[in-house]
Amino acid sequence: MRKHLLEAGDLDRADATLVLDTAAQIEAALAGREVKKLPTLRGRTVVNLFFEDSTRTRISFELAAKRLSADVINFSAKGSSVSKGESLKDTALTLEAMGSDAIVVRHPASGAPHRLAQWVKGSVVNAGDGTHEHPTQALLDAYTIRQRLGRLDGVRVVLVGDVLHSRVARSNVWLLHTLGAEVTVVAPPTLLPVGVGSWPVTVGYDLDAALPKADVVMMLRVQAERMNASFFPSAREYSRRYGLDARRMAALPDDAIVMHPGPMNRGMEIAAEVADSVRSTIVDQVGNGVTVRMAVLYLLLGGSPS
């Protein structure tokens, strides 16, 4: 395993599989236990360095670190020295001087975790950087698919929505491809990046055409502000063309599942009855997030052979 987890794009199949297998063992080891805590990372300090609000991701990492007995410091950039102009580099060096072993970073700028990794001695975990990647989300998604369908090789995954601005989409495209899944992205052309043609995916604009061949449908969050920038004419038109409602869900093969990284816009990209259906893995994804992040922290921080 490497020292940092910066992007799903640089995980090879062996690395990615090791994370998923480790998560499965951790899940089995903790199953049915009253004491959900392991002493593995006792004495290590994990800093959650969040430059964007993301309560769910921060809590997931916090719980993962605490279940491995690491000390956790939550550092929110809001109201801190960062908002007074302290640079990312100074912040990172300060935290490291205080003894952090790993920095879990969420940042609005793509590549910020890569920069951190060049400045600090400890491990860096990317918890979402700009419109680049969110590798632990992709790992937990892959874990959830494998858990539900028993495999990843050859699984047909349809990713729907704002691929252009989605770090979840990027991480999933690379990771799922690495793990042998067949990925299709479906979106209005305005929400696909120029250059998507070089990705290992099939590109489509028609959701109805993609659904009957899908084992997994992954819906991406669509931000309302995209509408104001003319990425699409209206929320209603978006929902009509790219939203997953009960009628569209019925077109899926029997054992297909529906995923969403959250937070959802119910009624926009996903209808409430779809989100709450038995096909939906949305709650599983949240629980698996903690397990997969435990596996990542263990593998990065457990130690390296001297």
Binding site: L18, P39, Y298, G302, S306
Partner: peptide, 22 residues
């Protein structure tokens, strides 16, 4: 019972793949 997550020598011996606890 896999003891890997309970070892006190991970720092020096390094991370290894977990085994089954059942």
């Amino acid at each position: 019972v896999d003891i890997t997550l309970y070892r006190d020598d991970l720092r020096t011996r390094g991370v290894r793949a977990l085994e089954e606890t059942r």
